[in-house]
Nucleic acid binder design. Structure first.
Lengths: 343, 343
DNA sequence: TGGGTTAGCGACAACGTTTTCGTGTTGAAA
DNA sequence: TTTCAACACGAAAACGTTGTCGCTAACCCA
């Protein structure tokens, strides 16, 4: 087992100073051609690579991006990470991933851990609990310390920083508008509880679309789900009692669950009831029927977030006077599949 | 913007030496009660936290685990990361994730990047290209430098290190055995090309099960898929020409694809043909029909891998004479769902 | 008063880099 | 022979820690 070789060892071996080795390896003209060659050959032989930690300490830069998300076993978040990782890698950055498990405390702990020098900046999506508590001091603190933060998807207006989101309200509006134009009049909604920002916005889009078409908002066909595992009864009751002709679900899990429950009750999708979901993930693509859905390009979102963060990191070099935070919108569109029909 | 405070700043402010501050914060008995209190109060006020990078450099330990996997937008790998992250976090480790995109070169580059001080060890699953090339020098090198490596799922015998796998062959055997016992006699196989280690093993399990039941191996009902996007024709032809009464697919994507193609041809699952997949992911759970599958607990796998790595890291403290590499088997079982029937 | 102990603290090295600022040697010009 | 530049290199500081060692003053006991 040969441990990694350091400048010091090379210096000792070649009987020159550490500085000389360092300079020789960086092709400084200060060093004679002879010495340079000798040092470089030796370094190559022993496969010398500078120690990242030492470089980080010296440069006060880690070239590492901290990602904090609620969970990773979730197609959308996985695609976002994928997008981040790609752009990060292209720019010489690594990503260090922490999961909050939707817990406020874990989110705080993770941020504090990474903020102590481990990363240059953060890309994050808020945990449910954080959104509920509306406590963002940990994020604000990190920003105050001069570390840039980019939030995506689940964001808050209470923190000033760069953000990457889709226009949830508009996307939901378009989906519901599409249903209305197809002739549906009794369109149900399966959504989250209100403190989840994206759920709330999508619900607003649903409401606005119905309003604009002079359709009534019927609370009986709106189901707000807190816990996915115990939602069946509520959805079934809604389907049973109010016979909606279409459903807009604010994520694909809700959509597929609704479809399955409908099937169980003898309703055929899309013949008896049409369903539109949100997020173009694995489920929408492979369920039977395949699900018409609002695509939400996670790769693109992650890529953009990474780009924004890196730009800000490299910009800081000069002067950090311009605190012009941006919010970028990633476009969405409806992916038409089998779960919707015309009447 | 108040940058992070350092020992030096505290020392200056309180007019004591850096060592005194350091010791006071660590509650050294060398320091008087008075000074300790004063320093600790000041540190708390300014929210002092030791700089991780400096600690890493000093201790020659980063408390970081490098994960290198082919892709993250893949339910199984996401669950493994989740499992790793959890155990890592519990033990004070962070995880830094790199994706090889199934590319040998990216795998090498990522390893070399992280090996230069960024991580204490690796948990990895081989890229397809690496498995095909059988070139593992980058892994061997890292091990030679004294960094422990744990491989999972896609492993190789050519590298000596800890491994966490399922018994792919046995799991496949059990699945096919189950089909045979249900009365199926013409069982097709949808598998990967041979260089993918897990595909190969699962194929062997299929062959062994049929052999043990004295059933013939019929190459006409075995489809080896290289590229998922262009596999439809081959599968359809197999279904059409050979009328298998059951199919064993080596992953869930192949399973759901087969089901969809069967449906398209007018075959009902499970009435006309039964299907068993591999990996209990989102697709198997939510497709219609839900898919009977070999469960492969990614969370557990990741957790075990993390545990093995951390144990080795903390063990190294003492003496690294005992190179007793272990291979842990994670148990699998068949999850019975709608895609299989008795004859 | 002298010797020894101890409490309380600071100096310094070390981890592995990079970079600035010397410094000694050479050769050439004056 | 003197002067000066150019060349080739080394010493040292800095990044933020921790821990070893040494130092000073106070105190105790004889």
């Amino acid at each position: 087992m040969k441990r990694k070789v350091t400048l010091k060892q090379i210096a000792k071996e070649l009987d020159v100073s550490i500085s000389t080795v360092s300079k020789a390896l960086r092709n400084s003209i200060e060093i004679s051609e002879d010495t340079r060659q000798k040092v470089q050959a030796f370094a190559k032989l022993y496969n010398y690579k500078p120690n990242n930690i030492a470089l980080s300490l010296k440069n006060k830069k880690t070239k590492t991006i901290g990602i904090i998300i609620p969970e990773i076993v979730h197609h959308f978040f996985a695609t976002v990470i994928s997008g981040i990782e790609q752009v990060a890698n292209e720019n010489g950055y690594n990503v260090i991933v922490c999961l909050s498990d939707e817990s406020f405390d874990k989110e705080v702990i993770n941020m504090e851990m990474l903020a102590n020098g481990s990363t240059d900046g953060f890309i994050m999506s808020l945990s449910k609990e954080t959104q509920q508590k509306k406590d963002f001091h940990h994020i604000q603190e990190v920003i105050n310390q001069g570390m840039p933060v980019v939030m995506f998807d689940r964001v808050t207006n209470d923190v000033l920083c760069d953000k990457v989101i889709i226009d949830d309200q508009l996307a939901a509006y378009d989906a519901v508008d599409f249903l209305v134009r197809q002739g549906f009049k009794n369109i149900g909604l399966v959504t989250t509880v209100d403190y989840v920002s994206v759920g709330k916005l999508r619900t607003e889009g649903y409401v606005n679309a119905l309003n604009d078409h002079d359709l009534p908002i019927n609370d009986n066909i709106i189901v707000k789900i807190e816990d996915i595992d115990n939602c069946a009864a509520k959805i079934e009751a809604m389907l049973q009692n109010n016979k909606p002709d279409a459903i807009f679900a604010v994520n694909e899990l809700f959509a597929v669950t609704t479809i399955k429950l409908a099937n169980k009750m003898g309703l055929k999708v899309p013949e008896d009831i049409s369903v539109i979901g949100f997020t173009d993930g694995i489920i929408s693509q492979f369920s039977t029927p395949t699900i018409t859905t609002v695509s939400q390009n996670g790769i693109k979102m992650g890529g953009r977030a990474a780009k924004m963060l890196i730009e800000r990191l490299e910009m800081e070099e000069e002067e950090d006077g311009n605190e012009q935070y941006r919010t970028e919108l990633i476009d969405t569109h409806l992916v038409h599949r089998e779960s919707t029909s015309t009447l």
